[in-house]
Amino acid sequence: MLQVRDGAGEMLGVLFERYHAPLYNFYAKLTGDRALSEDLVQEVFLRILRHRQTFRDGTPFRAWIYQIARNARIDHFRKSRPQVPFEPEMAPAVAPGDPAQQQQESELLHRAMMELPEEKRELLVLCRFQELPYEDVARLVGCGVATVKVRIHRAMQELRQIFHQLQAAPASSAQRAAAQNFPPRRMT
């Protein structure tokens, strides 16, 4: 990153190779929208280019890039508020060979994740999927480490409840959407 900051633009390509998949997954798991996730990843790297001069030596790069990623997402939703509702078609493909029950549970869990409030979902994505340490997450969201742990605990409790509700009434969200007069959407 220091080379990028000091003008070696081609080094940004190395950063792109290293971080574009994790960033894409960060967005995909948060928004459930593949096309938007691709766009936001591009936006992150454009912002790195624009703001590279503000990167300070000694700053943890991963935390810095996720800060940019969060800001890009906030800005996006500030401009266009509607969020893509989660639909079964948007569930990620489960690796082939998984037993059927495991696949079903995985889909159900993914759906439960998408029904969590956004800030709780973000915390889980950062801590569980992006595997950021609680200290980094605390810095990112602007609170103490203890607060992050409490929020993680609450998020997991809520996830458990939603998961149980979905298990008890596994009506597809397409059906629920139809009941609310919303057409189901597909991921592009």
């Binding site: 798991k29 990843v41 489960v94 995985s106 996830l159």
Partner: peptide, 24 residues
């Protein structure tokens, strides 16, 4: 809760499209 935490790892990662590199 602990079981769900482990199960979360079973949600597979999404693969970004190869066109992303060209756009970049």
């Amino acid at each position: 809760v602990a079981g769900l935490w482990k199960q979360l790892a079973l949600i597979p990662d999404e693969q970004p499209s190869p066109a992303g590199r060209a756009r970049f």
